[in-house]
Simulated scan of single mutants.
Amino acid sequence: MYQMPELEPMVSAWWQGLRQHLVEQGLNHGDLPILLVDPNDYYAHWRNPDLLLSQTCGYPLTHDLQNQVQYVATQSYQTAYTKGPNYCSLVLVHKTNTANHMSQLKGAILAVNSVDSQSGYHALRRFIAPLSGNKRFFSEVVHSGSHRQSMALVASGEADVCAVDCVTYGLLQIHAPATVANLRVLTHTQSTPGLPYITSLATSPATLGKLRNGLAAAALDPTLKSIRQQLLMGPVEVITGPYPYQEIINQADQANALGYTQLV
Rank of each mutant, 00 (worst) to 15 (best):
Y260P: 11
A129S: 09
S144L: 12
N250C: 06
A202P: 02
L61F: 13
A99P: 02
E140V: 00
R148N: 14
S139D: 13
D253T: 03
V161L: 02
Y245R: 06
N256S: 10
Q229E: 15
L263M: 10
G170K: 08
L92R: 01
L65P: 05
G84Y: 05
Q78A: 15
Q246R: 02
A123M: 10
M10S: 15
V236H: 00
G170D: 09
K225C: 05
Y260M: 11
V37K: 09
P242S: 10
T261Q: 13
S150F: 06
A13W: 04
N250M: 05
I34S: 14
N256E: 09
Q190F: 07
I198N: 09
S191E: 08
I109T: 14
V264I: 07
L224C: 14
T207E: 14
R47T: 14
M1E: 13
P177I: 12
P5K: 05
N134W: 04
T203K: 00
T179Q: 15
F127G: 00
A123T: 02
L7V: 11
K106R: 13
S54W: 04
N213M: 08
Y71A: 00
A155C: 10
L231W: 11
I34A: 15
G133Q: 03
D116Y: 13
A152Y: 07
Y169C: 09
Q75S: 10
R125W: 01
S54P: 02
N256G: 13
L51A: 01
L258V: 04
A111V: 06
Q104L: 01
G157P: 09
H29D: 15
K106M: 09
L92M: 02
A44V: 11
I109M: 08
N100A: 13
K83W: 11
T261Y: 12
H45S: 13
L131K: 00
D160A: 06
A152K: 13
F138D: 02
H143C: 11
T74W: 05
A80I: 09
P242R: 05
F137P: 04
V91P: 06
A152C: 10
V91H: 00
W15F: 07
S103W: 00
L195C: 12
Y197M: 03
Y81T: 03
Q75T: 04
A108W: 00
T56N: 10
D41E: 14
Q75A: 11
Y77R: 14
Q254S: 13
K83A: 13
P193M: 11
V37H: 13
A257L: 11
L186E: 03
M233F: 11
Y71G: 00
Q104V: 00
L220D: 15
R212C: 00
L61I: 10
